[in-house]
Structure formats: structure tokens, C-alpha cells
């Protein structure tokens, strides 16, 4: 159906690859959707969990995560999926508004590193509490 012409900006190779101008095809889009679907129940659980532990002191808070492995797992999932969703979303925002190539790249790298570092910190914190250190 697609023939190579002056109007068509894709090379025959890029058409064969079928990954579009972003070079990643639908991968980014799919990851944002997948994480969004997961975050619907996780977010609702998270809000209820936070409300249930408002004003809790340290002993009460840590007792919650030690006593409920399910809560610890859900909290780890919430943090992990949230930060995966966050880095993907921030990437698009930076791509849309930052037009100097090196600044765009630096911004994306910084945001992705920060998101995964924060995710690791959150997950480690939950594990540390849960395993009762």
C-alpha cells in the first residue's frame, strides 16, 4: 500500500521496520497504558491505606507493614509502577517542550535516573520495615 515517493518521508527500511518516527513503535504507548491500568486499583488502595494511617506513630506504621505482607507487596507495586509511569510521562513532557537536543537528552536522562532511584529507595524502605530491621 505504501509506495516510496517524494511525499513519503519514510525510507523503505523504516517502513519495513514499522517503528515510526519515534523509533520505538508502540512500546512507549503500551507501557503507559499497561501501567495506567495497573495504577487504577493500586491508587485507590493507596489512598485508602494512607487515610488509614494518618497520624500514625512510628511503631503503629511499621507494625502495619510487618503484620501485613500483602500491604507491603501492594506498596512496593504502587511505588514501582508509579515511578515507571512517571518516567514515561515525564519523557513525553520533556520531548514536547524542550527543543534543544542536548537539553532534551539531559533532561530525559536526569528524570529517568531520578525516578528509578526514588523507586529503589521506596521499595528498599518497605522491605526494610517489612523484614523488621
Amino acid at each position: 500500500m505504501t509506495t516510496h515517493s517524494a511525499k513519503n518521508l519514510r525510507s523503505p527500511l523504516s517502513e519495513a521496520r514499522g517503528l515510526g518516527s519515534s523509533k520505538y513503535g508502540t512500546e512507549h504507548w503500551w507501557h503507559q497504558r499497561l501501567t495506567a491500568i495497573a495504577l487504577v486499583p493500586l491508587t485507590i488502595w493507596f489512598v485508602i491505606a494512607v487515610i488509614s494511617h494518618l497520624g500514625a506513630d512510628h511503631a503503629q506504621f511499621t507494625a502495619w507493614l510487618k503484620g501485613s505482607p500483602l500491604s507491603a507487596i501492594l506498596l512496593i507495586l504502587t511505588a514501582g509502577v508509579t515511578f515507571h509511569h512517571a518516567q514515561g510521562g515525564m519523557q513525553v513532557v520533556i520531548e514536547d517542550y524542550v527543543h534543544v537536543e542536548w537539553q532534551k537528552l539531559a533532561g530525559i536522562i536526569a528524570v529517568k535516573f531520578l525516578c528509578y532511584a526514588l523507586a529503589a529507595a521506596c521499595i528498599f524502605a518497605v522491605l526494610k520495615i517489612s523484614f523488621g530491621a
Partner: peptide, 16 residues
């Protein structure tokens, strides 16, 4: 909300 995750991280790391 991405900025808000900083508070979430602080909260969890502080608890740990």
C-alpha cells in the same frame, strides 16, 4: 504528582 513522589519517598524512607 511526580513532585509529590518526593514526599512519598521521604515518608517511606523516614519510616525505615
Amino acid at each position: 504528582l511526580v513532585l509529590g513522589t518526593l514526599l512519598l519517598t521521604w515518608w517511606l524512607v523516614a519510616a525505615a
